[in-house]
């Protein structure tokens, strides 16, 4: 039984694996909650014992890890974080905006052009990652690695990008780079 399963059992009070798996996403968020270090210390102080304290710390680690699912602006639930897809295409537009920047990417597949909406972070996060409003230009060829939408639509969450020369985009060039 994994840590997540044990945590789910704790939350749902059930040993039914199906229930536990069904509720696993809720651990990711609602019960993210559950116990954090301060709370665990409170529990210890209020006499719940070192064993429970240890368990709660373990549970806290699970909950904290689950927090990684949270997106800056919204839940990441619509993206399949278990799938990574590489898209090669041409930039239609690069939208520098909040709450997200977007790359509208034209991808050729089987003779058909499909337009993808690739969601990025907000302008501040991109700026801090070396991106600028003109990092991408319309018509530019680019390779983008993404987490695709769960529903199969042509949308995705941005992970990384490289230009035609294979160099990663958005990284400031070293001072001594030629």
């Amino acid at each position: 039984m994994t840590v997540e399963d044990r945590a789910a059992t704790s939350i749902n009070g059930s040993s039914d694996l199906r229930v536990r798996r069904r509720f696993r996403p809720s651990i990711a968020a609602t019960i993210v909650a559950a116990e954090l270090p301060e709370t665990a210390r409170d529990s210890y102080r209020y006499g719940e014992g070192i064993v429970k304290f240890g368990w709660r710390m373990l549970f806290a680690a699970t909950a904290l890890a689950a927090t990684a699912l949270v997106h800056a602006h919204h839940s990441g639930a619509m993206f399949d974080s278990q799938k990574t897809v590489t898209l090669q295409g041409t930039v239609k537009t690069f939208q520098w905006s909040n709450p997200h920047c977007w790359i509208q990417l034209l991808v050729q597949r089987d003779g058909v052009t499909q337009e993808w909406s690739v969601e990025m972070a907000a302008t501040t996060e991109l700026y801090r990652s070396g991106w600028r409003p003109h990092t991408l230009q319309s018509g530019e060829s680019v390779t983008i690695v993404v987490h695709p939408m769960r529903d199969g639509s042509a949308g995705a969450q941005f992970l990384s990008a490289a230009g035609p020369d294979g160099a990663p985009l958005g990284k400031p060039k070293p001072v001594n780079a030629s």
């Binding site: 680690a61 904290l64 990684a68 990025m120 972070a121 996060e125």
Partner: peptide
């Protein structure tokens, strides 16, 4: 603070 906006750590 990543280009994808996703936390890479807990």
């Amino acid at each position: 603070t990543t280009p994808g906006g996703r936390s890479s750590t807990p």
